[in-house]
Design a protein around this nucleic acid. Sequence first.
DNA 1: AACCAGGAGACAT
DNA 2: ATGTCTCATGGT
Length: 207
Amino acid sequence: MRAVMEALSRAIPDPGVWWPADTRFEMIAGAVLTQNTSWAGAEKAVGNLKKADLLTVRNLSAADPELIRQAIVPCGYWRTKTLYLKEICAWFAENDAAAPAMDDASLRASLLGVRGVGEETADDIILYAYRRGTFIYDAYARRMLRAVGWGEYKTYAQARRSADSAIRGERFTVEEYSVLHGLIVQAGKDARKAGGWDAYRRSVLCL
DNA sequence: AACCAGGAGACAT
DNA sequence: ATGTCTCATGGT
């Protein structure tokens, strides 16, 4: 995987800041808001919440759902995401302070217990908000894994089950995992324009 | 104008 | 444990 990462770094010299957020809570809210929608839409929603001063645990917990709804319309699924934001607020208020002392597995299990937080969102939060080394097995990553011969996985859990021990064995740092995820997503977008991952792997990554 | 984006939950099989 | 449906909006 490290060879893949180096090839990706060469192909994408400036990946940019992958997960921009001013605070940990903002990052977590963004993780929920971007579910199955473009980052552009989630970014607008985040901006609207910020403008309404709703992007703090305190204010969002107390906020009228109708106000939240209006702010997050641009990222879609506003009915469910309004509920999800309330849920994650409750989790954050209750667990954020203790989170740093929790071991990785417990933190992940705790996050997965929240309505609206599935495996991918949990791992996004674990990596980008709590800074723990974690590989994100999202759809982009799974397409990449298939293209470079790491196996074909239909679901997040499947990929994680079968590939995680090998990837963890490479001892990536938190910073590397963060960059890697950004590189993989950018590569996925570039690959589509280049005519698919196989073509991209050959002609751009030279792998 | 179908297609898909930093997915997850409910439910049936 | 694994499929299928639904949820909403915005850009190609």
